[in-house]
């Protein structure tokens, strides 16, 4: 029986991408309908192109190895740095949002709890992260009719201006690129007996694309209907945590945690934590750095990474 701890199914992939993008839109405050749809289209294209282009590899580490051989970590190291940025941004936004509910609430008090939850989930494997994302659909199912009753909402904006697009791109970030690996690999035949026997077998790539657009549409719906009550915010924290877990999954994938032993895992996590601390310190010392780095990370990075990988693969094929 293969170890299923680090496998995710196609529906789990759908839920992870859905939570990730929806929470991203909510946290980073993109309210323009046009910008949201544009970014969704961009994200779906990235997913499909990447999933279709790269060769069959089970993880990011395997993908890097297939292109760069033993020097695969050269690509993985900058990826880890660039993943740390949006992860910290989302972590901070969620912590800030939670702290806002308290008089004199401090985001710093909330941060450790979120980090502990992420580490806890990561230690239980990718399957746990995927299943949690599936559970996040339930709070959303409560939230949607609740938002209709709440009243309020914003006047729809169709602007595609300088402020709208970056906010929406911040919601997407680089994670879908990593997920595109799973778009190919979240296949039912690699799953448990249960998943194999299950009648619900959507195509993984389709799951990713549908999730992106579903998240966009739900976000637009929530913008129109308004979901500002404490209960709505509470329910939105679940997909927000799902977003952090999606980061955890991608970080775990980049650091090749499933392939490592416990001791190596601990070392890698410690190094990543140090990296996050360094990024944090840099952003406090040089606020402009954080903004600029995020912009690079969210738009340029997803394209560059896979361009490098695809070119590397085609070069390798030609050489062979």
């Amino acid at each position: 029986m293969p170890d299923l701890k680090n496998k995710i199914t196609a529906p789990q992939l759908f839920c992870l991408v859905f939570c990730y993008i929806l929470a991203g839109f909510r946290l980073h405050g993109g309210a323009s309908v046009a910008a949201t749809l544009f970014v969704c289209l961009f994200c779906a294209c990235v997913c499909v192109v990447c999933a279709a282009a790269h060769e069959s590899c089970g993880s990011f580490a395997a993908l890097c190895r297939s292109v760069f051989g033993t020097y695969g970590y050269v690509l993985r190291a900058p990826c880890a740095v660039l993943l740390a940025l949006p992860f910290l941004a989302s972590l901070w936004e969620l912590a800030k949002g939670a702290a806002n509910f308290y008089e004199n609430g401090q985001a710093f008090a909330v941060l450790p709890v979120l980090v502990i939850l992420c580490v806890m989930a990561q230690l239980r494997g990718f399957s746990t992260l995927g299943r949690f994302a599936e559970l996040c659909v339930f709070p959303l199912a409560i939230l949607l009719p609740l938002s209709l009753l709440g009243g309020g909402g914003e006047t729809p904006s169709f602007a595609l201006g300088q402020e709208d697009l970056p906010a929406c791109f911040a919601a997407v970030g680089a994670v879908p690129v990593f997920f595109s690996l799973y778009l190919r690999h979240a296949k039912t035949d690699e799953q448990s007996d249960f998943a194999r026997a299950s009648s619900f077998r959507p195509a993984p790539a389709l799951c990713g694309v549908l999730a992106v657009f579903a998240a966009g549409l739900v976000h637009i719906f929530l913008v129109f209907t308004g979901a500002g009550s404490v209960l709505s915010s509470f329910l939105m924290w679940f997909p927000a945590l799902g977003r952090l877990f999606a980061f955890s999954l991608s970080i775990g994938d980049v650091l090749a945690l499933p392939e490592s032993g416990r001791a190596v895992c601990a070392k890698k996590i410690a190094v990543f934590a140090a990296l996050c601390a360094a990024v944090w310190a840099l952003s406090v010392l040089f606020p402009w750095f954080f903004g600029a780095a995020l912009a690079v990370c969210n738009v340029v990075f997803p394209c560059v990474v896979f361009a490098a990988v695809i070119l590397g693969q085609s070069y390798g094929r030609r050489k062979a």
Binding site: A98, R131, E134, L135, S198
Partner: peptide, 30 residues
Amino acid sequence: FSVLAAALVFGAAKSSFGVPYFSPFAPLSA
């Protein structure tokens, strides 16, 4: 929320004799 999320994470990781505890909704089975 934190306690509830932690409980859900534990629940999601839980299985009964190799079968995911929260199935059929996590993992989803029509």
